[in-house]
Design a protein around this nucleic acid. Sequence first.
RNA 1: GCGGGUGUAGCUCAAUGGUAGAGUGCUAGCCUUCCAAGCUAGCUAUGCGGGUUCGAUUCCCGUCACCCGCUCCA
Length: 517
Amino acid sequence: MGNAQAVEPKNTTVSDKVSMDELVALCKRRGFIFSASEIYGGINGFWDFGPLGVLLKNNLRDRWWNDMVIAPPIGPDGEPLQIMGVDSSIIQNPKAWVASGHVDTFNDPMVDCKLTKLRYRQDHLVAVVDERNGQIFAFYQEALEDKGTLKKLKKQAGTDELEKLKVIPFTAIPASDYGKVIGPDTDQKGTLTEPRKFNLMFKTYVGATATEDDIAYLRPETAQGIFLNYKNIVDNMRVRVPFGIAQVGKAFRNEVTPRNFIYRSREFEQMEMEWFCHPDEAKKWFEFWTDARKKWWEAVGVSPANLQLRPHDKDELSHYAKAGVGTVDVEYRFPFTAPGFGELEGIAHRCDFDLTQHEKHSGKKMEYFDDSVQPPRRFIPHVIEPAAGLTRGVLALLAEAYTADPSRPSQMYMKFKPSMAPVKAAVLPLLNKDGLPEIAQKLYYSMRTKFMTEYDAKGNIGKRYARHDEIGTPFCITIDTDTPKDQAVTIRFRDTMAQERVALDKIETFVQTALKE
RNA sequence: GCGGGUGUAGCUCAAUGGUAGAGUGCUAGCCUUCCAAGCUAGCUAUGCGGGUUCGAUUCCCGUCACCCGCUCCA
């Protein structure tokens, strides 16, 4: 996820209007998202989707699946792309996570400064050793290029001849020598704690014996389940490179600090697609997918003003992406990052890292033989990966939709794009008598087979409109006392509160047409 | 994991070392001819655990959760 960047909003955005407190309160009050195990006091970093939340999440997920697997985009050459779906197991052979690098690199040893309460990643620090007296200074690598740091170092070491000091990785300093270490933000010795590991993968045990030999991991990303099936797809599914494999599913990370509602939770859902191509074409496809993915977020209702593409800095790139054409994040201006942005999706060139690793560890050939060109060639495909956060996408849609409007009873409404709205239409008899409920129910039974519809006869009509504003229902259809006579109903539009009279037998088609826009 | 803050009905907010009250919401009924109208009845709370005390929602300790900052984030 991106560094929050100080970008001035060009115009009024949703992020200026909604506070997270208001959004979280609405999500609970209207049944979008609840804290997990709430009656037991909750559990840090886990959330439950309520009736409205799961409808919204499924709408976003289904749209992604449709636009990736059912009807993938037309490629840059005008040819339709080939993408297939899988649904792999959450638990795999633990060797898969050794091969992918997660067992080793999902450990981040940290040291704390007891004095300043600051925390540092051990492997991001360097040790400056004064061999004359054994004194050790710890600094961030990049801080050594800072004049102030160098000045402090000269002063503390009591010499101007810094070249006499030896710079080595801090990881090379044994914990028993920490007593001689002066931390980055203090001038006292011995304030750093021993490094502590934070393993970000959830462990579990397979089988009943639960010994160390039975350890397995909950997947920290869905991507590996795709690489593990790459060979099955190539061998059995009559595909040619380039092609893609897509998957939606849960992933688990034991985050040090879950924060910001569902933005960083320990159990979350990803929508990932791995695009396999020839190494020479990686750049072309990277650019294609970057563009396609940003447009997709706009298509589901995220305003371009709240979206940005942010290329990763070189030192920010993942281990697998260092040699590639790079990584770009699609970022959204979340309420808690505004005026900066936070990651919604990452498009990464993973090179051939994963397939090569699995080839090494499994002993199975991952090479692809391409005889569609002359001369025929063998290669391990490179991968372009658009990896989106479904959970984060839901949060973006919620934040984007929240619209204050003091002129209406609800004071606000959820301006979902109609196709994403949890409830598409509500059927409301104006009165609970005079045959109105009978007409309304008949319409409701018909409409609910086509799209999510609610029947609501409780309270007066104003209260019902207000509730549907709060859950973002784009269309309310009211059956009134004229309906039995003129066979027409009133449709009320969420965003404008305007009303229109439509024939009873045309209303369903009317809504269906409106949902496509 | 560290530091600071918070924790009373679904929500917003009162009160108190002596058994918690309002508004709103919700439920049922009446009523109701298009934007939270009205009437009647009803439901719902001191996060959890321990201590001090005759008695704790109130004071103390612990814990859990949330918020802010740090840290981290394939």
